[in-house]
Structure formats: C-alpha cells, structure tokens
C-alpha cells in the first residue's frame, strides 16, 4: 500500500475517536439531573402528582447512544422516586429516552435546547409508552426550572413552569446543597 504526503499509509481504516471531556461533562450533568430529580420528587407537589400516576416498580432511563453514559430512576413503595444510576439495564427499563449521539445530549445538558425542541428535531428517540414519556418530560421541566437560572429557563422552555419565587429559591437550595451531593 502506498504512503501519503505525511508518510502514513493511504486507505487505512479509521477507528472511532472519543470525546472524553464531553462524555465526562454529560456524565456529571446526568448524575446531577438524576439526583436532582430524586430530591425534587420529595419536595415538589406537581412532580409527586406525576409520579403517583406511574406504576410501582416503574423504571425510566436516559441514555446517550450508542455506549452511554446513562442514568435511571425507579418508582419504589410509598410513591418515592429513587435515583438508580447505572444499576438498571436498558432491557429492564420500562421507558428509555435515547439521545442519538453525544452532541445532541450536550445541546440539552448545556441548556442550548429544551426537551421539546430536541424531540421535535429528532435528536431524541424513545422506547416505551408515550404518555409516560410526556409525564416524565413534565417532571424534567420542573426539575430544570429549579436548576437553571430564570434567564436560561426562559430560553429553553416553551413556558417556564410557574413556581412561586420563595419556594423556587428554597427548593433550589435544598436540591443543590443536599439533593445532588448527598442524594437527599
């Protein structure tokens, strides 16, 4: 086989590279979202109402295709939503929301696109029941409202979920100080 001008072999195969920093960012963002969701589900009545409609043992997952990272939640006894990280497999999950690739996940987790926009642009796909996906999406919108500054929330959401300011600030503090780092 001949050589190109750099002295390397021409027509050689190119194995897929990696994006370690983006992967790490998304892994951290997913972890924060997972823990924040667990924490918010104990605080916010609208999330509680949504979780009530899910069957006990219901598992939901977010996964970046094709290799991850991914996170999952499970609804356990007493209407509690528990963050399960990577301890549930894709086949076990009742509902899986996939990001088609890492860049699409990065758009959502860097608050450049909302969930609705990402779905509309086919950046995400879905395994499972659409009605439950809608319910999970509403929960995510509320959790992201606690996590994002208002100016970003207004850019990302069609309509920012209404939460009174004192409550929003208080719950935000609990989620960020206790929920994400300590899983409370």
């Amino acid at each position: 086989m001949g050589k190109n001008w750099m002295g390397k072999e021409k027509y050689r195969e190119i194995r897929p590279g990696r994006k370690p920093f983006k992967a790490l960012y998304i892994k951290i963002a997913l972890f924060a979202l997972g823990r924040a969701m667990q924490s918010a589900s104990n605080l916010d009545k609208n999330i509680k109402k949504e979780v009530e409609t899910w069957p006990e043992g219901f598992t939901a997952m977010f996964k970046v295709l094709p290799r991850g990272p991914y996170i999952s939640w499970m609804k356990e006894k007493g209407n509690t939503l528990v963050y399960k990280g990577e301890s549930i497999t894709e086949d076990e999950a009742d509902l899986v929301i996939y990001f088609k690739n890492m860049e699409n996940a990065f758009l959502v987790f860097s608050a450049q696109a909302g969930t609705a926009q990402a779905f509309a642009e086919h950046r995400m796909s879905l395994k499972g029941d659409l009605a439950q996906a809608m319910s999970l999406t509403r929960c995510l919108n509320i959790v992201q409202t606690y996590l994002y500054p208002d100016i970003i929330a207004k850019m990302v959401f069609k309509r920012v979920p209404h939460i009174p300011l004192p409550k929003k600030l208080f719950y935000r503090l609990i989620i960020i100080v206790l929920g994400i780092p300590l899983g409370m």
């Binding site: 969930t115 779905f119 509309a120 659409l130 009605a131 809608m134 309509r159």
Partner: peptide, 13 residues
C-alpha cells in the same frame, strides 16, 4: 390530552 405525544410539538406548552 396533556399526556398525548403531540402536545410536546405544540408551540405553546
């Protein structure tokens, strides 16, 4: 209606 998949694609929430 709010659980219908089409709601997510509506311009307004």
């Amino acid at each position: 209606a709010i659980n219908d998949g089409s709601a997510i694609f509506n311009p307004e929430e």
